[in-house]
């Protein structure tokens, strides 16, 4: 099995430890990674999607072409990339005029969008394509005794209609939960699991409002779940929750800081990945959690 890895801006430049986590864990589970050389921005919501549909779709379609030319599907760790790519794929699928227009643009580059490649988010891909028992059996460390709270990320859920690896009930998602339980974690529910983390456009537009929004969520996590770790399904959520907590703590708005990792990082750790490489760039310290995983819970 082979898949095209769509890295995304934030992962490549901000949290390359997450990129390493994918590069480590996917092959461990028998999924070979293709780099999709020359991939660009998805493009993210504030750029071409906010300018025009055809331009957005053309940039996106070029990324799909890189996978199609190798007969591959695409996985992302970033909710925005996942959403942007899936939405253009949906538009191109249902709108022949748009497709013609986009292929008109791509023609000059010697490319042609066919629509054969699908896009998956990294956790959903494993859930759909890999036997969950295989994940269990490949673990070097388990998360037994570790309580986690989940942050699947808006884009892994909505609009569910357009995703091939969608949840059956997008308001009560279970994929990330099942996958964490496969690692041995104790998953604690909290009422604001599907609330937005405040990243994206809002963080760029107004950091204070963005952090305040996250604060409501963090309090729900702390009060209702009180976990050892927050696990995200999206790189943007990872960055927001990881970096905002320091500021909120400094401002006296929270009295705690909870470590946070993307699921792929947690998986990489359980598969024996080097902590400095696969989880070495966290701002909110994760060393306690990592010690617990690697020290106390040897399989």
């Amino acid at each position: 099995m082979k898949v095209g890895f769509f890295i995304g801006c934030n992962t490549a430049f901000n949290r390359p430890d997450l990129e390493q986590a994918v590069r480590f864990s996917y092959p461990h589970l028998g999924v070979e990674i293709d780099d999709l050389e020359g991939q660009s921005c998805c493009p993210s919501w504030g750029t071409m999607p906010s300018v025009d549909l055809a331009g957005w779709s053309a940039v996106s379609a070029r990324n799909f072409c890189l996978a199609e030319e190798k007969d591959l599907d695409i996985v992302t760790v970033c909710g925005s990339c996942y959403g942007s790519l899936a939405e253009t794929r949906h538009s191109l699928q249902k709108d022949p005029d748009l497709r013609e227009k986009v292929n008109g643009i791509l023609e000059g580059l010697g490319r042609n969008y066919r629509g054969s490649a699908n896009v998956y988010q990294s956790v959903g891909y494993l859930y759909k394509k890999i036997d969950i028992d295989k994940v269990r059996q490949s673990l070097k460390y388990s998360l037994a005794g570790l309580k986690v709270a989940l942050q699947p990320g808006c884009h892994t859920l909505w609009p569910s209609k357009i995703y091939v690896d969608r949840e059956e009930d997008s308001f009560h998602p279970h994929i990330l939960k099942d996958m964490c339980q496969a690692l041995g974690a104790d998953v604690a529910d909290y009422s604001r699991m599907t609330d937005c983390c405040g990243m994206g456009g809002m963080r760029s537009a107004d950091m204070e409002r963005s952090f305040n929004l996250l604060n409501v969520k963090l309090k729900s996590i702390k009060e209702e779940a009180d976990p050892d770790l927050i696990v995200t399904g999206c790189s943007s959520c990872l960055i927001q929750i990881d970096t905002a907590q320091g500021q909120l703590y400094k401002d006296g708005k929270i009295k705690f800081q909870i470590p946070v990792l993307h699921y792929m990082q947690l998986l990489a750790l359980c598969l024996g990945g080097e902590p400095e490489k696969v989880a070495g760039l966290a701002k909110t310290s994760v060393s306690g959690v990592i010690n617990k995983i690697r020290g106390d819970s040897n399989v």
């Binding site: 529910d189 009422s191 209702e224």
Partner: peptide
């Protein structure tokens, strides 16, 4: 827009 399940049997 949403009904959330709270710990216990409550709803938001």
């Amino acid at each position: 827009g949403a009904v959330d399940q709270l710990p216990g049997d409550g709803l938001r």
